[in-house]
């Protein structure tokens, strides 16, 4: 992937914006009958800086996707509010774009036309076509622009989906386990690609993932969502908020990250098996922050 930023992209380098979560909670109505509402999220307080990449980690079912969907306007909070660039989110917001876990491409459209779906309404045709081909270049699919989704691999489909989200020129890019369905090696390559893309198209990113390494590799900060252990209150909330040291791209094998990884896995309820190697489960290097 070339590191030079293409002209067409540099011109409309996006307006990364801030996100503020103020006391966000979401409770789902009971499946049937009139039982009590089932709270999934509560008291989410978080301020995301413009251009920041924040990873949301959590066990499955903890509400991380719900939080993302609320931010994107596909769902709405039952309490609290989400503000993007200071104004509250209500409904689908033109400033946000979503990359789903599945590519969700329209099977009857070519890669090019699928990416074009992301263009903001009212983009002049020529300008739109130019932007689409620039983005397809950026994700390395220029040879496949005329292919249908069924003719390309899962990784390529996911890259198309990413390009479609970027076509919206979003201030906030919401990624819902975007690489979760890919195999391990493709996932690593996609993470690097995402970093390249972000340097070409800086934007605020909320990345939902269950992959601790992915969060460490991509994020500036990591939010760990979890339910309280003592079940004192139902619904998940922010259990840990970590700043990842260093600048991207990070050394995947660094000891600092290994330490953070351990703490995050702990928070996710995964046994580190540290004692098996004769290491105390505590810290092996000084406590974060260093």
């Amino acid at each position: 992937m070339s590191t030079t930023v293409p002209q067409a992209l540099a011109r409309d380098v996006s307006r990364a914006v801030s996100i503020d979560f103020a006391g966000v909670g979401r409770a789902f109505a009971p499946e049937r009958g009139s039982g009590p509402a089932r709270p999934v999220l509560r008291d989410i307080e978080l301020a995301v800086e413009p251009g920041e990449v924040v990873a949301i980690l959590g066990t499955s079912g903890c509400g991380k996707s719900t939080l993302l969907r609320i931010t994107g306007g596909l769902d709405s909070a039952t309490s609290g509010s989400v503000r993007i660039d200071g104004s509250p989110v209500s409904g689908i917001d033109p400033r946000t774009a979503i990359g789903f876990q599945e590519p969700r491409l329209l099977p009857w459209r070519t890669v090019h036309d699928n990416v074009a779906l992301g263009l903001p309404r009212g983009t002049p045709k020529a300008e739109g076509a130019e932007r689409v081909s620039t983005l397809i270049d950026l994700v390395g699919l220029s040879e496949f622009a005329g292919h249908r989704p069924r003719e390309i691999s899962g990784g390529m489909a996911q890259r198309t989906s990413l390009a479609r989200a970027l076509a919206r020129n979003p201030g906030v890019l919401l990624l819902d386990e975007p690489f979760g369905a890919l195999d391990a090696l493709t996932r690593l390559k996609m993470q690097d690609l995402l970093l390249d893309i972000l340097s070409a198209e800086p934007t605020t990113v909320l990345l939902v993932t269950h992959d601790v390494d992915e969060a460490l590799q991509l994020a500036d900060r990591i939010v760990l969502l979890a339910k309280p252990e003592d079940e004192s209150a139902p619904g998940a909330t922010i259990a840990q908020l970590l700043t990842v040291p260093g600048t991207r791209p990070r050394d995947r094998g660094s000891a600092e990250l290994a330490e953070l990884r351990g703490r995050l896995l702990d928070g996710l309820g995964i046994d580190r098996h540290g004692s098996a190697r004769g290491v105390e489960t505590g810290t092996s290097i000084p406590h974060y922050p260093y």
Binding site: I152, S153, G154, G155, Q158, D183, L185, K189, L193
Partner: peptide, 12 residues
């Protein structure tokens, strides 16, 4: 042919 990941991210 569409099994994800059989194909590398190098499109070519």
């Amino acid at each position: 042919e569409r099994v994800p990941g059989v194909v590398t991210t190098q499109g070519s």
